[in-house]
Computed example of a mutant assay.
Amino acid sequence: MKDFSAEINKCIEVMAKGGLILYPTDTVWGIGCDATNEAAVKKVYELKQREDSKALICLVANDAMLERHVAQVPELAYDILDLATKPTTIIYDNPIGLAKNAIAHDNTMAIRVASDKFCSYLINKYKKPIISTSANLAGKPTPTHFGKIEDPILKGVDYIVNLHHDKQNGPPSSIIKLGNDGTVKIIRE
């Protein structure tokens, strides 16, 4: 547990200074940063060599944090999250208090309530949402485990979490778009 706490504290220290972390999530190894820090989000796009018109996923620790960062969480979202059998990311209208360059051009944000113990503790202790994007360069496949992450990513982050390096990735999250008008669109099952 000591290592677990030390890793969380190191990640918080790095993110608080606008740095990037490489960390295990409930799905894949992710590149993360403070989701409220525009300069840090810009570094993520630069590292991935990705256009900033491609939206990112944001992780929150719980429903309360979700409600602080979305103008109106549709009731259906809670049902979907309660019934989901795997990590589920929901795209919400009108995000609040997140870096402008992390928000999609249509004023939506893909947000997942983290189910992984490490992520939940990290985000809870940091008290802010964090970005989560797969640890690969744009156009390259998502690495299936830590050993497949390419050098530019490993060298481009400010800190690599020293846990779960032997763990295979879980399946990618489902992605569902929920409009405040009641529309539901499945983006990825």
Rank of each mutant, 00 (worst) to 15 (best):
R50S: 08
Y126I: 07
A77T: 01
N37I: 00
K117S: 14
I80E: 02
L98E: 07
D79F: 10
K17C: 13
A16N: 14
L59M: 11
L122V: 04
K42W: 14
A135F: 06
A99K: 05
D82V: 04
K86G: 03
K155E: 07
A40C: 12
A77G: 06
N169F: 01
K42H: 15
I8F: 03
T89E: 02
A35Q: 04
R50M: 06
V28R: 10
Y45R: 09
N107D: 13
K86I: 06
T85Q: 13
V113C: 12
A138E: 09
A110E: 06
T144P: 15
K2T: 14
E189T: 08
L20Q: 02
N101R: 03
Q168K: 15
A138K: 07
M65T: 01
V28M: 14
G179V: 09
N136Q: 03
V60K: 04
D106W: 09
K43H: 04
V70P: 13
Y126D: 05
D63M: 12
G97E: 04
I111Q: 01
I103E: 11
T183I: 00
V60M: 09
C58W: 07
A138H: 14
Y92N: 05
S53V: 12
L20M: 04
K155V: 05
I8K: 00
L83R: 14
R112D: 03
E189P: 05
Y126V: 05
S5P: 03
L137Y: 01
A102D: 03
S174D: 14
W29G: 08
I96F: 07
I31T: 01
L154M: 15
R50Y: 10
V73Y: 12
A16E: 12
A35I: 11
I186F: 14
L59I: 01
V184F: 01
Y92Q: 07
L76P: 00
S134M: 05
C119A: 15
D34N: 13
P95I: 00
V44H: 08
D93F: 02
N107P: 05
